[in-house]
């Protein structure tokens, strides 16, 4: 939930992305990536449908300020409907986050193909300001 009294200088963003959405010429981003204005952790998946609601919620329960799922465009999934399933799961988890008063905006889905490292970083970068407005994840206080 938005809390004006809190300040976030650098939201921690976890980016889980379909490796098939990334250009074959691009290098897969893996692990932490901290540069000026961005504190992100990247994890490549064989398909965006590999995300499970429990994984997304655990990432947030562990203190990440936001999660970004990057999937292939609709109709371009190598496994037919994996990216459609991913979107349904993201929407389901967003509804759960609202019920928990955490704010659905902490979880978003973007689509893309032939993405480069720069594109992935840019997608993550675009989440920084919205997450700053949202405020820090309250779960951070538990030594996370």
């Amino acid at each position: 939930m938005k809390d004006a009294n809190r300040s976030v200088t650098m939201p921690r963003i976890v980016v889980v992305y379909c490796r098939n959405a990334v250009s074959s010429a691009a290098e897969l981003l893996e692990g932490p990536y901290t540069v000026k204005g961005l504190n992100a952790f990247f994890a490549a998946l064989p398909c965006s449908s590999k995300i499970e609601p429990s994984y997304l919620l655990k990432i947030l329960a562990d203190g990440a300020d936001g999660v970004l799922v990057v999937a292939c465009p609709e109709g371009h999934c190598r496994f037919m409907v994996g990216n459609v399933r991913a979107e349904k799961r993201v929407n389901y988890v967003r509804s759960l986050l609202d019920k928990a008063k955490m704010g659905a905006e902490r979880l978003t889905l973007e689509r893309g193909e032939n993405l480069t490292e720069k594109d992935l970083l840019s997608l993550a970068q675009r989440r920084v300001e919205p997450l700053k407005i949202l405020g820090p994840n309250p779960m951070k206080g538990d030594g996370k």
Partner: peptide
């Protein structure tokens, strides 16, 4: 198992919003 592992972090977050850990 999936629902258990989904509900557990969700409960933690919902309770945290009420100041309970």
């Amino acid at each position: 198992e999936r629902e258990v592992e989904t509900l557990a972090p969700l409960l933690q977050m919902a309770l945290k919003q009420e100041g309970r850990t």
